[in-house]
Structures are given as C-alpha cells and as structure tokens.
Nucleic acid binder design. Structure first.
Lengths: 321, 321
DNA sequence: TTGTAAGCGTTATCAA
DNA sequence: TTGATAACGCTTACAA
C-alpha cells in the first residue's frame, strides 16, 4: 500500500509538498503539484485516515446513543442527523444501548478515547453525574432539557406538552383520561407523570393507576392496551398515547373489538408520524428530523458556548378526538 | 491529556511495559504492573484509539450501507448486526445512501482509507464493476446473491421465493395476481419480475401491467394501492406485498373502503414483522435479524474464503389469504 | 516556494 | 522480564 513517502519519492518532492497538494494548501508550484497528482494516479494511493485523525486529533465522527434503531421515533431523529452529517462531511456512529447502562458508558468512553469528536445522547439511562464526568472530553449533546447544566441540548418541554394535551381533552369533556408511555423510568416519563399528577389535582380528578399503560412502544403494543381496557369496569374515555405507532395499533385493534373511536375512546398520539396522517389520528407534532438536525449542529459547533433550545410542538386535529 | 509516555515516567517503567499492562500481555512483574495501574488511576489516562488503530492497522469499525434507516426492514437487519457487533467488540458505522450512488462510493472509499475494516452493503445501487474495484481493500459483504463473484454474501433467493408465493395463490384459485415492490430498479425486484413473468407464462395468464405497484415501502403507501385498485375495472384478486408494513396499510385502508380481505382481495406480506402477527397477515417470514448477524460475521471473518449462504424462508399462514 | 524533522500515541521487534 | 527504538502514515513548525 502506497503511502505519502512513496508518493514523495515518485514525484521527486518532499512529503510536505505531497501533504500540501493533498490538503490543497498554498505554496506549491504548479509543476510539482502536477507531478504529485500524477504519482497519485499511478499509484492507487489512498490516505490512511487513521493517521490523519491521529495527527489532527479529530475524527469527523459523531456518536449517537439510541436505545433502539427499529423505532420510527428514533429513525426520524437519526434521519435528521444523518442528512446534516452528510452536508458537513461527518459520519455518524450508532451506539445502540437497549437501555443498558454499560453500553452508554462505552459511548462515553469513545469520546474520551477520541474515537468520536462529539456525542449525542437521544435517550439517557445513566445518572446525570456519570455524564458529567465526561463533559471535559468533548461536546456532549442531549435530547432533554439540560438548562443549568454544562451541556447543550435541544428538547421538548414534555411537562407543558402533556399538560396542554390533557387540558385539551378535558375541555372536550373528558374526565377519565389515561396515558400510554414507553418506559416508566425515562426522563420524559417523569415530566409527563408530573403533568398528569398536577392535572388531576387541579381538576379534582381521582387518580386511577389502571389508566397508566407502560411498555407502549410499537404498533403491536396497542393490542395489550385495548384488551386491558376491555376488561375494565370503569375504562378511560380518552388516552394520551406517546407514540403514533401505538395509537395506530390501538385504533386498529379497537375496531375489531367494537370500541368506537372517538366516541368510546378518544385518542391523541405523539410525533405526527406518517401513519398518523394516514389513519387520521389527532396527534401532537414533534419535528423529530428538525430536532435531529439541531442536535447534530450543536454537537459539531466549535463554539464552546452551551445552548439549550426548546422546540415548540403543536396539536394537529384529526379524527380521533 | 496523559499519554503512555507520561504513564511510563510516573510508574518508573518503560512505555513498553505500560503497553504490556494495557494490553494484558505476559512478562511483566506484578510489582511493576501495580505501579502502572496506579499511575493510570491517578492520571485519568485514556488510550487514544486512533493511535492504536494506526499502529495496528485495524479499527474495529464495520461500515453498513443502507438506503434508509427509518424502515423496519433495514432496522431489523441492523439490529441483528448491532447485537453481534456488540459481542465481538466492533462498532457499526452507518452509511445512509438514500440510494445516491456517490454516497455508496463514499462508503467504499472509507474501506479504502482503512477507516473501516469491512463493509456490508444491504442494498446496492452502484454497478457491480464499481464494487469490484474495491474488493482488494477489505471484505465487502452483500445482502444479495453474489455466487460466482469474489465477495461473500448472505441472501434470499427472491426468484424462488416469489414464485412459490405466486403458485400458492394460484393453488388457492387466484388468477388475477398483482404485486407491490419498493423500487423497480433494485436487484431484488429484477428477480421478482422474472418470477412473475415466468409464472404468468407457465399458467398462460395474461399480463396486466396495472397489477404492478411500485414505490411501496411504508404503511402509508398502502393507501395508494387501495385507491388504485378501487378505480380498476378489473382489479386483482390477490396481491403479493413485499413489505408487511405496506400489507398492513392495505388491510387498514381496505377496511374503510369496504374491500373485504381475503374474500375481495387476498394478501401475502413479506418479512413477518410484528405488525403482520398483530394484524393476522399471511406472510413470508424473512429472518432479517439472523441475516444481519450472518452478514456481520462474514464481514469480520479473518478467513479469506468467500462464502455465499442462502437463507431459506417460509410461509406463515394467517388470515389474509 | 520547498524540505527537514519533530511530533501525534500507540504497538512490535529485538537485544539485553 | 524489561526497555530502547523503530515503525505506523500523516501534519506542521521551522528553517532555508
């Protein structure tokens, strides 16, 4: 495999000159440049990128921590990042954690090892203090509110958002409102839980723990929700469903169980995924691709300043409320 | 940032000894080892992985070329790879091409630049000859039949598979059979087209170009299919749908249009995605996660031998035929 | 405008 | 069992 030294020999110049033409630096006579270019052509030379990385101390790689890659929510987010990465000549390294703590730490280690220039954490499992230990090794960007902390973020105010949706349902006459979330322990879920608690307190609604459904991530999870509702003596009349996928599953399954939507059960989904549009599901639009883009841009920004940008969401009224 | 030389100084040993400790090599006295370990602890030392890569000529990174990351088909495939990568201590670098040729070439370049140890191409857009130019730079593995070529692969025999499904429908009495595919120009589609052609010839069925639906990738694409069928004077009685996602979309949409499944329209999906199970869709199971695993293993195998493994698929009978 | 040589942080060879 | 020292392939002061 030809290296820069071979090239120099072939072209009858120094390695510096070769490096200069390789990197389009000034100060090289046209004649020598041509000689180098010629040598490159003849030799099937290819830069060893690791050597460049080592020398420059930069890799143009950005790590992305996600729990699963097979969920549209994260897929949309990644799409946003990937498109931007392409433009900026970066590559994305996917670190799929399945919510295992040690895999998230591995991602953090990659940053420390300089294998990646920055790290984007889309869904965190580690305690905050652990993340904090790594902030000195490079930019870490989160998809959750980190105001007051020393890292940048782009995020949704899930508390506000959830409360808004609950009150919207309340105004439509619903008093028995339940909700479906992914994992109960997530940061987002905490905010949503808080919003729910404040909501039922404000309107003096009695708390019914049965109305909270967790492990709702995929279309097929809608089935469990419907069958549990079927069994209830006092079922909810409306549901906030934190993924359109699940909402679509509920709609599909409800039909076959003779539960009418929205008359028997009103539904608000989240994300405004294509499936929501097709199935006419009222949903809260979350611009995931845009968020992905912003997260990425924050990650590669040289500017050391910490920024925390809240992304506004809005309700799209369709036929399930 | 502490490096191995600092460590050596601190521990009062040579860099070699430090490297030995770091890599768990033999021949280092317990006492010195402890000294090194102690220095590591005190110094917040972290290996620079690029230097390791440069020195070893290996990165433990495998590139994965996919068109989109937001489709369950590819997501499942990636999941299979990601799990295996984890076990083997490799990382996956995602190269999303959106079927743009130059992005696929970029991936090939990464291999040449030694930024990745191997490349897995899940769906190819480049001509074969282009791929071939890069085979000397490292293992390239394809998810398509490459028998007779100098690269390894794990693949489905889409011709056989399609023909089997067509004959299955034929045996059930269907004569007007259509199919839905993703992109017409893909390698897989060519095989399927050939199977279809041979099928209608064999059974003297007249060819109706209307029965072929392309750009069918997502759930929401089912809508277009249904509306087009609605408009036909002589609609198909059965459909082969190369993604369960689309099949699910068709089922959902058909219901609202009073098309009864399977009596008005029989459906065979592909993949056996969770949604197919939930919606009781008859489908051809393609073990994508397993395929992903095999592709990955072929990619990192030191063994220079070219292997081409065909993965058998089978029909899962449910309620849409 | 060009080139020498000193890094970058490792690993590997070889002699001791 | 240890340690100099030479790679690995590139970039970049600095000197010329």
């Amino acid at each position: 495999m030809t290296n820069i030294r071979d090239l120099a020999k072939m072209a009858g110049v120094s390695v510096t000159t070769v490096s200069r033409v390789l990197n389009n630096h000034p100060y090289v006579r046209e004649e020598k440049k041509l000689a180098v270019l010629d040598a490159i052509k003849k030799s099937d030379y290819q830069q060893n990128i690791n050597a460049v990385h080592l020398s420059k101390g930069k890799t143009f790689l950005v790590g992305v921590v996600i729990p699963y890659s097979d969920h549209p929510y994260f897929a949309l987010l990644i799409n946003g990042m990937a498109n931007e990465a392409l433009k900026e000549n970066y590559k994305l390294v996917l670190i799929q954690t399945s919510y295992e703590r040690n895999k998230e730490i591995e991602a953090l280690q990659m940053l420390k090892q300089k294998q990646i220039d920055a790290l984007i954490i889309c869904s965190r499992i580690c305690e905050w203090s652990t993340i904090e230990e790594y902030t000195t090794y490079g930019p870490i960007v989160l998809f959750e509110d980190t105001k007051g902390k020393e890292v940048s973020s782009t995020f949704i105010d899930h508390y506000k958002c959830f409360l808004f949706a609950l009150e919207y349902l309340f105004k439509k006459g619903h008093k028995k409102i339940g909700y479906c979330i992914g994992r109960r322990s997530g940061t987002n879920s905490k905010y949503r839980e808080a919003a729910y608690k404040d909501f039922i307190e404000k309107y003096s609604i009695s708390n019914n723990p049965e109305y909270i459904f967790d492990h709702c991530l995929y279309f097929e999870d809608g089935e469990k929700v419907v069958s549990r509702i079927k069994e209830m003596t006092d079922p909810p009349t409306a549901l906030l469903v934190t993924s359109d996928q699940v909402a679509a599953g509920i709609v599909t399954c409800a039909k076959s169980q003779n539960i009418f939507i929205p008359s028997d059960l009103a539904l608000i989904g989240f994300d405004n995924q294509p499936i929501a549009k097709m199935m006419n599901i009222t949903t809260i639009e979350i611009p995931l691709a845009e968020i992905g883009k912003k997260l990425f841009l924050q990650a590669i920004s040289d500017n050391k300043e910490v920024t925390n940008e809240e992304i506004k969401v809005h309700l799209i009224e369709r036929k399930t409320v």
